[in-house]
């Protein structure tokens, strides 16, 4: 079980969180004309890297804030966590 540092609450066990997927995906702006391909990439296509991955976690049984976590997908090492609105490195 991972031990995730929530920037709002401190270090908490994984079972307080829900996984939210790739944090680098940006939703296309509203009312913007975009191609099928672009929309498809946004909705369906995700990278599945081995190694560093910036991902979203929702502190669902805690402060209910979405946070960004930089984690190594093969070793589970967590390098850094960010608040939702914090700029990532």
């Amino acid at each position: 079980m991972l031990y995730i540092f929530c920037p709002h609450c401190g270090s908490r066990s994984q079972n307080e969180f829900a996984y939210g997927g790739d944090a680098t995906v940006k939703r296309p702006e509203l009312n913007k004309e975009i191609s099928d391909q672009e929309w498809n990439n946004f909705v369906y296509l995700r990278k599945s890297p081995r190694g560093k991955h910036l991902e979203l976690w929702h502190h669902i049984s805690g402060c209910r804030q979405w946070i960004k976590v930089e984690r190594d997908t093969s070793t589970h090492e967590i390098f850094k966590t960010y608040k939702a609105d914090e700029l990532t490195e």
């Binding site: 979203l56 209910r64 804030q65 979405w66 609105d85």
Partner: peptide, 11 residues
């Protein structure tokens, strides 16, 4: 609720 929080906090 999670869905709404996602859009309010991140999008």
């Amino acid at each position: 609720l999670s869905h709404l929080e996602y859009y309010l906090q991140l999008v």
